[in-house]
């Protein structure tokens, strides 16, 4: 890839403007071809855009087209029959409700963790801060087997609840626990930077106006965290809906009771029901995107009110 010198770039622009530049050319000077590349000062636009588009088309778009086209093999009826099947409905309901409640818990726990990490100084803070990212870094299968053994009736935590007659592993509660694990860093990492950059003068202003620390936290600081909290919530929620590895070991996978939607896709694939698997996938995606749209809409509303 070559670049054109600034002079020739200027020439090319003259020519594309329809004016002749012959007179000012020194003898023996061959004007470079006036491609539209010369409109860019920096090199590599076509090459980089070409790589990007090709790669995204092959790796993301083509497979998604295959996914979107697949469910209609047995017509719209086939799709509707698949996604309104009671087992599918139960699985979707389970996935979305456990993901929702896990995200709600993470909203509060994540806010407190982010608050503590930005507001207070205490020994070991840097290690705690780093370890919050563990759910991002720990392979989901590892989390899955570990949570499963912890919360099984004979596990460290499970054995505490077993005598009370509460079963955690192999029930929807177990799914919820796994989703709380993987979702926590999303909320913490969304809120933390906003809280860390909160203008100290705004807080002092509230103080001089007579607000108590509690009033300052609730009326002044919390509202400015709202966009970040919503972002963290929706990221944790979206991740939880599709989560597979950390859930599958602890879930129990009982049809109608503790069977999550991603697992249903796996089961349908094992039965070579490609259309059915794709239908469940499309239903999941449609629901997820609806929820993302709603949260985006709330964000826009908030930013209109000057909060963003």
């Amino acid at each position: 890839m070559t670049t054109d010198s600034p002079i020739s770039a200027g020439d090319a622009r003259l020519e594309t403007n329809g004016r002749s530049a012959h007179q000012i050319k020194p003898e023996g000077f061959k004007p470079p071809k006036a491609t539209h590349r010369t409109q860019h000062v920096l090199p590599g636009f076509h090459a980089s855009l070409g790589i990007t588009l090709t790669y995204l088309s092959l790796i993301v778009l083509l497979p998604l087209v295959a996914l979107v086209l697949r469910p209609w093999e047995a017509g719209l009826d086939g799709f509707i029959r698949t996604v309104t099947d009671e087992r599918v409905l139960k699985a979707l309901q389970l996935s979305f409700t456990t993901a929702f409640w896990a995200a709600v818990v993470n909203l509060f726990a994540g806010l407190i963790v982010a608050w503590v990490l930005t507001r207070y100084e205490f020994p070991g803070k840097k290690i705690i801060d780093a370890i919050v990212d563990l759910p991002f870094a720990l392979p989901t299968a590892v989390a899955g087997v570990s949570l499963s053994s912890l919360y099984a009736p004979n596990g460290w935590v499970g054995s505490l609840f077993d005598p009370m007659g509460i079963k955690i592993a192999y029930t929807p509660i177990g799914i919820f626990i796994a989703l709380v694990f993987i979702g926590l860093p999303f909320v913490v990492r969304s809120v933390q930077p906003v809280l860390a950059e909160f203008d100290a003068e705004v807080e002092e202003a509230a103080l001089t106006l007579g607000a108590t620390p509690m009033q300052t936290a609730i009326r002044v600081i919390l509202p400015s965290l709202a966009p970040a909290l919503i972002t963290g919530f929706s990221l944790a929620f979206a991740r939880a809906v599709g989560e597979y590895g950390s859930v599958i070991f602890i879930a129990g996978n009982m049809p109608y009771i503790s069977e999550i939607s991603p697992l249903l896709i796996v089961i349908k694939l094992e039965e070579f029901d490609y259309a059915g698997a794709a239908s469940v996938a499309i239903a999941m995606l449609a629901l997820s995107f609806t929820i993302l749209l709603v949260t985006n809409f709330v964000q826009v509303l908030l930013s209109r009110r000057g909060r963003a």
Partner: peptide, 23 residues
Amino acid sequence: LLSVLDLPFTLSPVISGLVWILL
């Protein structure tokens, strides 16, 4: 382009596997 770039983050891992079986 940016939205497409972010898509893999929002896909369930299972769906990210499923699409290749479909192809």
